[in-house]
């Protein structure tokens, strides 16, 4: 879908097809069309497109989706690391970007 815009192929997205009830919520929320509907169940079309935003897992009423979600933002990750250091904890807060 996003040609030229792929980052990693092994996102932490985990889909359990046995639990899927075919509601289609994951298709609606996914910004990269990772899922498609086939035979009354969601089918993982392309895991390499997943950006781990967590929208599908949060909106799956059957609990069929798991993902280690977060923002793919270097500044946020850097601040989270710095906030673990005792003295710097006063200055940096984890996940602090876009503020």
């Amino acid at each position: 879908m996003m040609q030229g815009f792929r980052h990693i192929e092994d996102a932490t997205l985990d889909y359990d097809a046995d639990r899927c009830i075919g509601c289609g919520n994951c298709l609606a929320v996914c910004p990269h069309q990772v899922f498609e509907l086939g035979q009354g169940k969601a089918v993982c079309r392309d895991r390499g497109e997943c950006m781990e935003c967590g929208a599908c897992a949060l909106n799956c009423p059957a609990g069929a989706l798991q993902v280690r979600s977060g923002v793919g933002c270097a500044q946020a990750i850097l601040h989270a690391w710095l906030a673990r250091i005792p003295l710097l904890r006063r200055v940096f807060t984890p996940d602090a970007c876009c503020s």
């Binding site: 092994d10 270097a74 946020a76």
Partner: peptide
């Protein structure tokens, strides 16, 4: 360029963590 990851709509936590 690494900090630009936060402005894009396709990078993931795992991916950016790894490249950092």
């Amino acid at each position: 360029a690494m900090h630009y990851t936060g402005s894009t709509p396709f990078t993931s936590l795992s991916g950016v963590d790894r490249e950092m």
